[in-house]
C-alpha cells in the first residue's frame, strides 16, 4: 500500500516535471532544423511560471463550465498519466484502468475543452470545438484497431500486462503486425496532440487553428493549466507508444538504483521519438482540414493491416 503510494507520487512528479521539458525540446529541435536559434528548452517552464503569476480575464458570457474545464482537463490527463508504465513496467494506478480508460479519460478532457470553447459565445471557440471533435472522432477507429492488435498480442487491455508481454519479447516490435500498429499509432499521436500536418501548435491564424482556437478565451493560471495538461497529454501518449513497443530499460519496480537507469532509458527513448516527430513536422506542410480524414484513413488502413498480420505471420 505504502509502496504503491510512493510509486504514484514519484510518477506524478516525473509527469509534471518532464512534460514541459519534452515540449521545450521538441520546439528547440524544430527551431534548429529550421536554422533558427529557438528560445531554449526551458522556455515552457518560464511560460508556465509567468502565466501562473498573472491575473486573468474571464469572458462575461461564460458560465461555470469555463472555470471547471481547466481542472477537469488537468486532472483527467494526470490520472491517465498515472495509469501508464513510465519507468517501471508496473503502472502505478493500473488497477484503476488500462489503455481503454486512458483513452476515455483523455476523451473526458476533450469533451470539456470543446464545451468551454463554445461557452464564451465567440465564434473562434466554436470553430475549434467543432474541428477538434471531428478530428478526434475520425482518429478513434484507427487508434482502436492498433490497440486491439497490441491488446490481442498481450491478451489484456491492462497496460501493466501489455508492457509485461512486450518485455517478454523485446524485439517483437520488428514483427509486421507491431510495425503497422506502431505506424498507425504515430499518425494518431500526431492528430491527437495537434501537430503538423494536422494542426499547428505554434500558430494563432484563424484558418488553421484547432486546439488554439478552442482555448482562445483562456488567460493567466487557467491557460497555464490547460497548456500544462496539453504537454502532459503529449508526454502520456508518447510514453504509451514507446513503452508498449520498445520496452527496453523498463524496470521491474520503481525502487532501488534501477529507477535511475529506467529514467535514463525513458529520456533516451523520448528524445528519439521527439526527433522523429520534429522531422515529420519539418518536412511536411500543414494539411487542409478536409485532407485530414485521408491521413486518418491511412492510419485506419495501417491498423487493419496490423490486425490481419497478427494471424498471417
Amino acid at each position: 500500500m505504502m509502496a504503491r503510494l510512493i510509486e504514484n507520487v514519484a510518477q506524478l512528479f516525473l509527469l509534471l516535471a518532464l512534460a514541459p521539458l519534452v515540449t521545450g525540446v521538441i520546439r528547440t529541435l524544430k527551431a534548429r532544423m529550421q536554422t533558427r536559434r529557438g528560445p531554449g528548452i526551458l522556455q515552457p517552464y518560464r511560460d508556465l511560471g509567468k502565466l501562473f503569476g498573472k491575473g486573468m480575464v474571464v469572458p462575461e458570457t461564460a458560465s461555470w463550465i469555463f472555470a471547471a474545464t481547466p481542472w477537469v482537463v488537468f486532472f483527467s490527463t494526470v490520472l491517465a498519466g498515472l495509469m501508464i508504465p513510465m519507468v517501471a513496467a508496473d503502472a502505478p494506478l493500473g488497477l484503476f484502468g488500462g489503455v481503454l480508460a486512458v483513452i476515455y479519460l483523455l476523451g473526458l478532457g476533450r469533451f470539456f475543452l470543446a464545451l468551454s470553447g463554445l461557452d464564451s459565445g465567440s465564434s473562434f471557440g466554436g470553430l475549434g470545438s467543432s474541428r477538434e471533435m471531428t478530428i478526434s472522432a475520425l482518429a478513434e477507429p484507427a487508434m482502436m484497431m492498433a490497440i486491439f492488435t497490441v491488446a490481442i498480442g498481450a491478451g489484456s487491455t491492462g497496460l501493466t500486462e501489455i508492457a509485461g508481454a512486450a518485455i517478454g519479447q523485446q524485439w517483437r516490435f520488428l514483427a509486421p503486425a507491431q510495425m503497422f500498429a506502431f505506424a498507425a499509432l504515430v499518425l494518431v499521436l500526431i492528430a491527437e496532440t495537434g501537430r503538423i500536418p494536422v494542426d499547428n501548435p505554434a500558430t494563432h491564424l484563424e484558418l488553421t487553428m484547432i486546439h488554439e482556437a478552442m482555448i482562445l478565451e483562456y488567460s493567466g493560471p487557467y491557460l497555464a493549466l490547460i497548456e500544462w495538461a496539453a504537454s502532459i497529454k503529449q508526454l502520456v501518449l508518447m510514453t504509451l507508444l514507446i513503452n508498449c513497443f520498445w520496452p527496453f530499460g523498463l524496470q521491474p519496480t520503481w525502487f532501488g538504483l534501477g529507477a535511475m537507469e529506467g529514467i535514463g532509458w525513458l529520456l533516451a527513448k523520448l528524445l528519439l521519438l521527439s526527433c522523429s516527430i520534429v522531422l515529420l513536422e519539418t518536412v511536411n506542410a500543414k494539411m487542409r482540414l478536409f485532407r485530414v480524414p485521408e491521413l486518418l484513413a491511412v492510419a485506419f488502413t495501417l491498423g487493419s493491416l496490423a490486425l490481419v498480420s497478427t494471424f498471417l505471420f
Binding site: V72, F75, S76, L79, L93, G94, L95, F96, G97, G98, V99, L100, A101, L105, A151, G155, S156, T157, G158, L159, E161
Partner: peptide, 17 residues
C-alpha cells in the same frame, strides 16, 4: 473475467477527481 484481463475502477477514478 479472463486471467490478466485488465481492470477499471470507476470508484477509484471518481475518488481521484
Amino acid at each position: 473475467g479472463t486471467a490478466h484481463g485488465g481492470t477499471i475502477s470507476t470508484v477509484g477514478i471518481a475518488l481521484f477527481f
